[in-house]
């Protein structure tokens, strides 16, 4: 299970970590980025120190020179992506393409900005903002209306709802009805899917890039992946395999205004199919979940009645 805690900084201040052995460059970058109130920057000179910073504070963006005293920027970016898969990585460097060992890390997709081109340091703040706000380095598809969708998600007090037994009861009923290994009710946040309820597994949160939900949210109607390992989008996702997710079916949790908050999902450890009647029942379960969410959104916690499961 993923255990990190993301901040909500990406919705407010962009937290930048800059790593460069040259103090002058660090000061220049701090000055450029420091001019903008929606960004904060911390500078350091080695991978080791940067790693310590990562452990202390969440980051939205890491900028690094290629050659560092204790490794390369790719070594650093690998650590960043392990901890913060959605963090933007920018190679801001004196190194030319020929000087970068790009064959050693073939899947290290980063932005590249050469210090050798005059004026590039002035472009850094804009680049940082474009990549982070525009989600230009995330490893999954993003709904077109994502900003508005996330605003709507924040209207629901999910921490409060997660303690409600009503959602656990619905998950229990659904698991029994469909005869599957696990059922969960997931809410898709900016970087993670948080589970309001889960039955049949001890799951509470997933990195967004490892969810099937972030794909199914873009589809109309229920989505069924009969065999996850036979689907080219997920067959190489080792996390799904570790969790035993072999078959997946889900339906959107859609507000009355049409915003998709997340998914109600059925999980099984072997490939399986669902007929039309199953999918209709799944829709009804999802409607019930949304109705419970709506009731709780409209009524402040202090006024919630026992009938609502408190």
């Amino acid at each position: 299970m993923e255990t990190r805690i993301y901040s909500d900084m990406d919705r407010e201040t962009i937290a930048v970590l800059h790593v460069d052995g040259d103090r002058g460059v660090r000061e220049d970058v701090a000055e450029q980025i420091g001019e903008y109130s929606d960004m904060s920057v911390t500078g350091t000179r080695t991978i080791e120190r940067a790693t310590d910073r990562l452990a202390d504070d969440p980051v939205d963006c890491v900028i690094s020179e290629y050659d560092l005293s204790d490794g390369t920027a790719f070594d650093l970016f690998s650590r960043v992506r392990e901890q913060y898969p959605d963090a933007a990585c920018i190679l801001y460097t004196d190194a030319t393409f020929a000087e970068i060992d790009n064959e050693r890390s073939e899947e290290m997709v980063v932005e590249y900005l050469s210090k050798r081109i005059p004026g590039t340091e002035q472009r850094l703040p804009g680049l940082v903002r474009d990549i982070t706000r525009g989600r230009m380095q995330v490893g999954y598809p993003v709904p077109e209306n994502e900003d508005e969708r996330l605003d709507t998600v924040t209207e629901y007090d999910l921490d409060e709802f997660a303690s409600s037994p009503a959602f656990e009861r619905l998950a229990t009923l659904a698991r029994s009805h469909f005869g599957v290994n696990a059922v969960f009710i997931g809410i898709m946040k900016a970087h993670e899917e948080e589970l309001l309820a889960c039955r049949g597994a001890e799951w509470s949160v997933f990195d967004r890039q490892n969810t099937i939900c972030t794909y199914s949210m873009l589809e109309d109607g229920p989505t069924v992946i009969e065999d996850v390992q036979a689907d080219s989008r997920f067959e190489h996702n080792e996390r799904l395999e570790e969790l035993g997710i072999r078959s997946w079916a889900g339906v959107d949790l859609t507000t009355p205004e049409g915003t998709v908050l997340g998914e109600l999902c059925l999980i099984h450890d072997t490939p399986r199919t669902y007929d039309e009647a199953d999918l209709e029942d799944l829709r009804l379960f999802a409607e019930e979940v949304v109705e419970q969410l709506e009731l709780r959104r409209r009524i402040p916690p202090s006024e919630t009645t026992p009938e609502l499961g408190e």
């Binding site: 790719f74 393409f97 790009n102 064959e103 997709v109």
Partner: peptide, 9 residues
């Protein structure tokens, strides 16, 4: 397969 190289270049 070298996405790093393609992207940087």
């Amino acid at each position: 397969s070298n996405l790093t190289g393609i992207n940087i270049l």
